[in-house]
Amino acid sequence: MRFHTRKWVKPEDLNPNGTLFGGRLLQWIDEEVALYAIIQLEIPKTVTKFMSEIDFVSSAKQGDIIEIGIEVVKFGRSSITLSCEVRNKITRKTIISIDKIIMVSLDTEGKPVAHGKTKIEYVKDRLQDIDE
């Protein structure tokens, strides 16, 4: 799993118990997987279709640094399926794991559109294609 983004848990991210609010964490995850899918599929109109069971394993508190990891599970015709893990950057302790997140590319009318991708592409490879 590649960890792409780090977040610093601030006072505004806390629930009444003084730990990271689950809704805030899900917001961060949804944004991160959306950005990842849009970049991979190169279709700006890509949305969340499905998230499997969400398992909060541990919590985070103010001042913790967390990191969000994403892994591609598979490419569909108009979708990309990802898994996600969020962990404490310092302790490496898992905070949450999600086995399956499906993102779908849409056309201008909001209908699923084929993206034509079958494998992960890295920026360095895309830049190499431009240089050639």
Rank of each mutant, 00 (worst) to 15 (best):
A60V: 01
G116M: 02
T81H: 10
T94Q: 14
G63I: 10
I120A: 10
F75S: 02
G116H: 05
D99I: 04
D107F: 00
V73W: 02
Q62I: 08
C84T: 11
T108M: 07
K93T: 14
K117D: 13
K119I: 09
T91M: 07
A114E: 05
V113L: 02
I80H: 00
D64H: 10
C84A: 11
V86M: 11
L82I: 03
I66Q: 12
E109I: 10
I95R: 12
G69N: 07
Q62W: 02
V113T: 08
A114R: 04
I95S: 13
D64A: 05
G76N: 00
G110S: 08
S78D: 00
V72G: 13
K100N: 11
M103K: 03
T81Y: 06
K61Y: 08
C84P: 07
V113S: 03
K100H: 11
K93H: 14
G76Q: 00
T94F: 12
V73E: 05
H115P: 12
I90C: 06
E67A: 11
K111Y: 11
T91N: 10
T118W: 08
R92C: 15
S83T: 08
I90H: 08
V73S: 04
S105A: 15
L82T: 05
I120M: 10
E85G: 10
V104G: 02
I95F: 14
L82H: 03
V73L: 03
E71W: 04
T94A: 15
I98P: 04
I68H: 08
D99V: 05
R77C: 01
D99F: 08
K119V: 09
T91S: 12
K117L: 14
I96E: 06
I80C: 00
G76M: 00
G116D: 06
R87I: 13
F75T: 01
I98A: 04
K61C: 03
T81V: 13
I80Y: 00
K89T: 14
C84F: 06
K100D: 06
G110C: 09
S79L: 01
D99G: 11
V113N: 01
S78M: 00
K111I: 08
L106W: 01
D64K: 09
I65Y: 13
I70M: 10
N88V: 12
I96K: 04
T108V: 08
K61V: 09
V72M: 12
N88P: 13
G63V: 11
G76W: 00
I95Y: 14
S78P: 02
D64C: 05
A60Y: 02
T118H: 12
K119F: 10
I102H: 03
G76A: 01
F75P: 03
K100E: 11
